[in-house]
């Protein structure tokens, strides 16, 4: 029976336990994970069609009495398989804090203002080329209590399902040039610097709208756990 150990080991994901990220201490498993044999793994996953995301769900600046405070941005990109195929009809869910760095969540009580015109959750379905597009405002950095004077770089949470249960991915998108990035234990939990860089979006003229919004591009690739690693440079 083949096992994970016999397959190409190209681990881009962070380990469960990471001393730099304090919340892992009581939540990361201590026992070794049991390798899932490929022939026993599920080959299907949920499919979400129309009815799960309306066009207005992709505009996080809408749906309230007024406009949210902050820099308007368009965030767009493609959801792809590691084989390069675009994933059409994918449900993409995002959520984020507001421009002041405050989440619309009762657990976030740090002294930054809530914005009555911003909730910060959106979703959409990818088109035939695997493209998604959201309009939102640029999220702020926010403090957390992981270590003294800890601040998370600005980020947007992403959730995609892929083509099968094995491809389910929740991740975070960061912004280019953010000075907090080198100090973030969550991003640095990813050991491969090149893999870290793949979570940083790119400024994008194509989706930048004149006198209206800046554009950022961010592609998501799923299914790479079975990928063959590149030759070491």
């Amino acid at each position: 029976m083949s096992t994970v150990a016999e397959r190409p080991a190209w681990t881009v994901d962070p380990p469960y336990g990471d001393p730099g990220y304090r919340s892992t201490a009581k939540r990361a498993p201590h026992r070794p994970l049991v390798p899932m044999a490929p022939e026993l793994a599920p080959t299907t996953g949920p499919v979400f069609g129309e009815g799960y995301a309306d066009p207005e769900d992709a505009d996080l600046t809408a749906g309230h009495a007024g406009e949210p405070i902050g820099q308007r941005i368009n965030v767009s990109g493609r959801i792809l398989g590691s084989d390069g195929r675009p994933l059409a009809g994918q449900l993409v869910e995002i959520w984020q804090c507001n421009a002041a760095g405050r989440y619309a969540h009762q657990g976030d009580q740090h002294p930054a203002p809530l914005d009555p015109n911003f909730t910060g959750a959106g979703r959409c379905l990818t088109d035939a080329e695997g493209r998604y597009r959201f309009r939102t405002i640029r999220p702020g950095a926010y403090p957390w209590r992981n270590h003294p004077n800890a601040w998370r770089p600005a980020h947007i949470h992403f959730s995609v399902f892929g083509r099968a249960f094995t491809e389910r991915l929740v991740t975070q998108m960061y912004f280019p040039g953010d000075p907090l990035i080198p100090f973030d234990p969550v991003l640095r939990s990813i050991r491969d610097p090149k893999a870290q860089e793949r979570l940083v979006s790119a400024f994008d003229w194509d989706s930048t709208e004149e006198e209206f919004a800046l554009g950022f591009a961010f592609d998501v690739v799923v299914g790479g756990h079975l990928a063959t690693p590149p030759d070491p440079a």
């Binding site: 990220y21 590691s82 949470h157 929740v170 969550v186 592609d219 079975l226 063959t228």
Partner: peptide, 12 residues
């Protein structure tokens, strides 16, 4: 054959 490196996971 694979062509694209995967996007890593981050905490929810």
């Amino acid at each position: 054959s694979t062509t694209l490196p995967p996007t890593p996971s981050q905490t929810i």
